[in-house]
Design a protein around this nucleic acid. Sequence first.
DNA 1: ATAATTTGGTTTATATTATAAACTACTTTA
DNA 2: TAAAGTAGTTTATAATATAAACCAAATTAT
Lengths: 95, 95
Amino acid sequence: MFKDLDPILHSQLRLAVMSILISVKEAEFTFLKEKTNSTAGNLSVQIQKLKEAGYIDVTKQFKDNYPQTICKITKQGIKAFEIYVTSLQSYLGTG
Amino acid sequence: MFKDLDPILHSQLRLAVMSILISVKEAEFTFLKEKTNSTAGNLSVQIQKLKEAGYIDVTKQFKDNYPQTICKITKQGIKAFEIYVTSLQSYLGTG
DNA sequence: ATAATTTGGTTTATATTATAAACTACTTTA
DNA sequence: TAAAGTAGTTTATAATATAAACCAAATTAT
């Protein structure tokens, strides 16, 4: 009846990050922080979890003398997001 | 951009319970336990939280010599569920 | 020049949540 | 009357989320 919800994605902040990355394909840490209205600490942790899960790739480099963290969704991440969305339908009555 | 998700509802089991109660209006503990495939302990705790939040009413009685717990969604619960669903749209790109 | 502030984060500590295990109280069946 | 089943609750533990504190370097103000 109810499909299990991927615990990696069933988190407000991680879901927001994935939601952004699904549409823009690539985003900076600071951009994600601003868009999700999250604290840097929380975002840092959640990005690590998404990376560990293989849902995003994280590249660290320097830009204009400052460190820059770039996040990019993976194929696996896209798949997981899609599955999560359809699984949710079973709870919302919208599917 | 992203609407906050009601933490009471952003829980797999509590959401499943609410999803059932939205459609059937009233359900027994054992029915919820079976439909959600949860353990009694977990369900007991989550029902209490939904009750504390004012999202459901809980009635305890005896039926055929056995204790019986009946759950019913409240107006507030229906409203909260609806808000949760529309808030989720902002994450899923489906709204 | 150097002290204070800002940028872009990470790490660590704490509070919250979810879950399972253990327990209660009673009923039914062997 | 002992064992097993029903219908839960309580308690302990593991997992999560979040905030606070911290770090390293850059910039700006004095």
